[in-house]
Simulated scan of single mutants.
Amino acid sequence: MKHCLIVDDSAVIRKVAKRIMEGLSLRTSEAEDGEQALTVCRQEMPDAVLLDWNMPVMDGYEFLRELRRMPGGDFPKVVFCTTENDVASIARAIHAGADEYVMKPFDREIMTAKLQDVGVV
C-alpha cells in the first residue's frame, strides 16, 4: 500500500486530506510543519506528500528543498496544497521540486485527478 504524508498546520485540512487519501487506498501519516515532516521522511520515505505552503517552524518551500536533498528525497511525488495562487508562487514551488499544485479548498475529485496526473493512484 502506498504511503502519503500530509503536511499542514491545520488539523481540519489534515483530517479532510486523510479521508480522501484513505478513500484512495493510501496509507497516511501526518505532520504539522516541515520540520516534523522531515522527521517522518527520515523514518520512512513516503510515496507522496501533500504539502501546505505557509506553516510555522518550517514552511513548505523549505521542507521541499530539504526533502529533495535527502537520500531518496527525489522519489516522493509532492503536491503543494495552498491558498497561494500567484504565478510567481507556483513557479517557485515547481522550481523547488513540486510535481503538482492544487488550490485550497480542494475536494476528492480534484485531489484524485492531481494524484493520478503524477502517478500516485
Results as ranks from 00 to 15, higher is better:
121 V>T: 12
105 P>K: 10
38 L>D: 04
36 Q>M: 11
113 A>D: 14
66 E>F: 03
84 E>S: 09
10 S>P: 07
37 A>T: 07
57 V>Y: 00
32 E>A: 15
49 V>Q: 02
96 A>S: 13
102 V>E: 09
57 V>E: 00
65 R>A: 13
39 T>A: 11
83 T>N: 10
96 A>V: 09
51 L>P: 02
2 K>H: 15
100 E>V: 01
61 Y>W: 10
12 V>N: 10
28 T>G: 07
1 M>H: 14
13 I>M: 12
53 W>E: 03
101 Y>A: 02
74 D>P: 01
71 P>Q: 08
19 R>S: 14
76 P>D: 02
89 S>P: 05
5 L>R: 02
48 A>Y: 02
13 I>G: 00
52 D>Q: 06
102 V>F: 05
86 D>W: 05
110 I>L: 15
12 V>G: 11
101 Y>H: 01
77 K>F: 05
49 V>D: 02
25 S>K: 13
102 V>C: 13
49 V>Y: 00
20 I>Y: 00
64 L>E: 06
115 L>S: 00
81 C>N: 04
120 V>Y: 01
66 E>L: 06
111 M>Q: 00
68 R>E: 13
32 E>C: 12
47 D>L: 10
75 F>A: 15
14 R>E: 03
11 A>P: 07
6 I>D: 10
101 Y>E: 02
20 I>C: 02
120 V>W: 05
29 S>G: 15
120 V>M: 08
50 L>D: 01
41 C>W: 09
59 D>L: 00
56 P>K: 11
41 C>V: 07
111 M>Y: 00
87 V>M: 13
30 E>M: 14
43 Q>K: 14
97 G>V: 12
48 A>H: 12
60 G>T: 03
65 R>C: 15
50 L>A: 09
